[in-house]
Design a protein around this nucleic acid. Sequence first.
DNA 1: ATGGCTCTAATGTAGAGA
Length: 260
Amino acid sequence: MKLATWNVNSLAVRLPQVLDWLAANPVDALVLQETKLTDDKFPHAEFAAAGYAAQWHGQKTYNGVALLSRSPALDVVRNIPGFDDEQARLIAGTVDGPLGPVRCIGGYFPNGQAPDSDKFVYKMRWLDALHDWVRAEMAAHPNLVLMGDFNVAPEDRDVYDPVAWAGQIHCTPEERAQFQRLLALGLTDAFRLFEQPPKSWSWWDYRNLAFRKNQGLRIDHILVSPALKPRVAACGIDKLPRKNERPSDHAPVVVELTAS
DNA sequence: ATGGCTCTAATGTAGAGA
């Protein structure tokens, strides 16, 4: 069973690339971030024609998330229950597969803008609410995957220039502590279960030839629950879509789970 | 050099992203 996450930075612009990617990478489920579409504009018919059921939660201009799956997702949740949020940042659903039901949570975590900003305060509140809700979800769903654009680089090795980025947004001690709190729930960063190429990033700035110079951050993650950890067969970042014409600034992250 | 590029609202320009 393969699951993936991809911040597409506008699904209106990137739909052809997402369809191409799914044709080449027929994953069982894919969560999208930054769709930037109101719900009436979501291209569910195009995904249905490609063999994917869709659940979505969007808004105008900013944010927006979706969950695509081969078999339709059940018990779908939009945004963090109990956390009043005007921004469309989370979707969850249960996807059936060879391992039985898997709870798939896709999140577009707040950017935070700057450590001294109101948006950083919101990011911390959002992460607090996520932590408490994920704990409850893990109790209800042993097979659980939390994936998405976390907007956190967990360690210095996830940053192309850790000295320049020290204390900057995505790299502050507060954000990294929030990432560790999620791990402390029993979740595992699937990417780090394997040897990976050094300087592995999931995002590269559009500016300054950052992709060509491989100057990026690893901020898109897939965390798995204890029951799934021994089932993780592979996890990697697919840089190919970043080489396309008009690419997203993020690359997809993929995890493979085996039944035995 | 605090920008660089890309997206959205728009149709000139500004805010956000990371």
